[in-house]
Structures are given as C-alpha cells and as structure tokens.
C-alpha cells in the first residue's frame, strides 16, 4: 500500500509517505491506523487522537470501516482548512 501523509500528520511522522505491507488481517482503514500507530513513536503521536485524523482511499474520502487492499493509495491528514 502506498501511504501518504499531509500537514501535521506528515510533520509528526517525519515523512511525506511510505510503502507498507501490513499483515493480511489489516483489511480496513481502522485496522491500518492501529497497525501504523505501532510502527514508531512518531506514528503513535500522529495517530494518538483518531478523531482528528481524516482518511482518503484512492483519492476519495473514506470512513474507518472502508476496505483497504494492496495497491491502494491511502492518505491520512487533519480536517481540511482551505478556502
């Protein structure tokens, strides 16, 4: 899976993205967040408050129960503040 991070999520994790291969039981956004949060202290910090994190799967907004699979582009970011 190709993971992208934006805004303070990127700053806390310390990189703009990474290629990951989580175990096969990671099939939803929520499970992926749990798995990513265990990868480093920076990841744990970024995902500490799940309510402040938004997700997109293949460039569409996604909910925690959305299915994810190998090859997907999955982005994590704070609530948007444009305009």
């Amino acid at each position: 899976m190709n993971i992208l991070y934006f805004a303070w999520v990127r700053q806390k994790i310390g990189r703009a993205g990474e290629e990951v291969s989580p175990p096969p039981e990671v099939t939803t956004v929520a499970a992926l967040v749990d798995w990513l949060a265990a990868q480093s202290p920076g990841h744990a910090d970024a995902f500490a408050n799940r309510r402040t994190i938004r997700c997109a799967v293949n460039q569409e907004f996604a909910t925690p129960d959305q299915v994810v699979k190998p090859g997907d582009e999955i982005a994590f970011f704070p609530p948007v503040t444009g305009g």
Partner: peptide
C-alpha cells in the same frame, strides 16, 4: 477540498489552522 493552512507569525511561532 483537501487544503491545509499553516500560520506563521512575526515572532517566529507557527501553527496549523484548525477546522
């Protein structure tokens, strides 16, 4: 629309704008 604003102040402080 996915945009994020970071504020930079004259005294050097920076912070992300909250929704």
């Amino acid at each position: 629309a996915p945009f994020w604003k970071r504020e930079e102040f004259a005294d050097g402080r920076e912070r992300w704008v909250e929704a």
